[in-house]
Write a protein that binds this DNA or RNA. Structure first.
Lengths: 117, 117
DNA sequence: TCATCAGTATAGATTGTCTACACTTTTGGC
DNA sequence: GCCAAAAGTGTAGACAATCTATACTGATGA
């Protein structure tokens, strides 16, 4: 069978949607491009697997936060370009503030004395 | 008697172990006390459900990061007190730096221009 | 011709949350 | 004496987002 693998989760569950929405705010992009942008912007720390990416994109589209259209890339290949909808922009705002809140809360747990607000 | 709650995941998956280990670094504590400490230190943002807490404690103990012993509380009730093992301290260090790395990477994705390192 | 890159997609396993129960013991009010 | 609430531990099963692994297509370059 397979080599014994660690199955370590690279991404924090729930943050992929936020990262996708955020990436799309810079402009429309196809799935492959989104994954590359996240990887680059995270300093190569975060790698998005296709098995996570495409289900996430379908999920987001199903919820009306992004919309897709097939278009050719500069390289002349067909690709599905996604763009943020108005609802998606609102969702992005909500998820960003949720993220900030969680990071702040975690900081409180990790450094109770320093971060006493 | 419960507060009104949303149907969302309160905690980021994977962060509970870190929070438990960190809380135990301040001194030994029982499960109920850990949950209360996390809630308090997070400014009441993070609420740990018992259905998440106890499985997590058992998981951590199984991995040798914490050890338990039944003792009476000040209130005279029996409780299972947990303390960090040496391996647990190393794990805490590793998980903290992993967390910092993830938060930094997320910052890069959310604010690509400002956080160019 | 053949490997590699660009690109999309699905199935199934895994894992850690969640909701919802079930239980014991102590404390305090009546 | 009774009963509610708080303090405490625990499990079962649902659920969701990630992962691994696989399967395609079309273009590019050696």
């Amino acid at each position: 069978m397979r080599e014994r693998y660690k199955n370590r989760i690279e991404l924090l569950q729930g943050t992929l949607d936020l990262m996708i929405l955020q990436t799309l705010q810079w402009g429309q992009q196809h799935g492959y491009g989104i994954a590359n942008a996240i990887q680059a912007n995270s300093g190569e720390v975060l790698r998005v697997e296709t098995g996570s990416l495409y289900p996430a994109l379908h999920r987001l589209e199903r919820q009306g936060w992004i919309k897709s259209a097939w278009k050719p890339t500069e390289a002349g290949q067909r690709a599905k370009f996604y763009r943020l909808t108005a609802a998606g922009k609102r969702q992005l705002t909500a998820e960003r503030s949720r993220w900030d809140q969680l990071v702040g809360a975690m900081a409180g747990v990790l450094n109770p004395r320093e971060s006493q607000s």
